[in-house]
Design a protein around this nucleic acid. Structure first.
Length: 271
DNA sequence: AAGTGGACCTGCTAGC
DNA sequence: TGCTAGCAGGTCCACT
């Protein structure tokens, strides 16, 4: 579900409000992707520090370590002053004096994992191998081009993989490739430097625009204030199979790559 | 090493 | 109306 914009919008919606709050209780629902990795009671009395993001992961700093959180495909976080009774899909509550941070995740691909530090233990393991942040100045056409050397996988899958650049999931990878005019089936090592430059710029501009619009709300994404995003109304290829291309009036196609749907315009996206 | 496919889990929708 | 197959924003892991 949530790609970088949704995760970042979520982070921004509660980071300032939760900072400095002391943990009073922890409540667990059904198991998530991984076990918490510590006794829930050990979090009590710790004070929440900064909330930061790396790729699609959020790091909630605490006194003696922190929680690495991921929203998976269907997760969302809410931070409410008064926590309502948990529903069947509410699987993690961090109760503080300022309110309760609650992870709701029907499919339970999400995770909340304790780690002694961002660069140690479970967090280090999960974050190892992540590519550059898309807004890191080091992420440019040259970096992308170099990282694609020897990579025979389709450019769409290379983007989704997250080992080169993080943050673009299925929606934004499709949108960025459309923006850059590149056929998603193109082999990674066949994308020229010039086109890598266009693509790097497209990844950044697509994610930046989604961020401004509060992310995408396909099913039920909400930030921690309960606000929906608007980007889905701006999508030019994602979910538009059979509709006319906004640029060339051709027909948007849907194909499957790596068991994921890819949407593109055969007219304006070239190999 | 890189590429591929399966796995995790639930809810919704299109189609019969 | 009711059932079923297929699909969904992610990413880890085992295997070739």
């Amino acid at each position: 579900m949530p790609e970088l914009p949704e995760v970042e919008v979520t982070r921004q919606s509660f980071a300032d409000r939760i900072r400095g709050a002391r943990v009073q209780a922890v409540r667990l629902g059904k198991p998530l992707r991984w076990p918490l990795g510590c006794a829930p009671e050990s979090l009590v009395a710790q004070v929440v520090g900064e909330v930061t993001r790396r790729g699609k992961y959020l790091w909630l700093a605490l006194d003696r370590g922190g929680l690495l959180m991921h929203l998976g495909m269907s997760g969302s976080l809410a931070f409410d002053a008064r926590g309502a009774a948990p529903g069947p899909h509410d699987h993690f509550d961090l109760v503080t004096a300022r309110g309760t941070l609650r992870l709701t995740d029907p499919r339970r691909f999400g995770a909340v994992v304790w780690s002694p530090a961002l660069d140690r233990g479970a967090a280090a393991k999960l974050l190892a191998g992540l590519g550059l942040e898309p807004f890191d100045p080091a992420f440019d056409g040259a970096h992308l081009h170099a990282a694609l050397r020897g990579r025979r996988v389709a450019i769409k899958q290379a983007l989704l993989g997250g080992a080169i650049v993080v943050g673009a999931g299925n929606i934004y990878a499709c949108e960025a490739l459309f923006e850059a005019g590149i056929d998603p089936r193109t082999r990674g090592d066949r994308v020229s430097l010039a086109r890598c430059e266009r693509l790097a710029a497209a990844v950044r501009s697509t994610l930046a625009q989604a961020l401004e619009l509060g992310g995408s709300t396909l099913r039920n994404f909400r930030d921690a204030h309960g606000m929906a995003g608007e980007f889905q109304n701006q999508a030019r290829v994602y979910g538009r199979e059979g509709l006319a291309c906004v640029r060339c009036d051709g027909t948007i196609r849907r194909i499957v790559q790596g068991q994921r749907a890819t949407y593109f315009c055969p007219g304006c996206q070239r190999r």
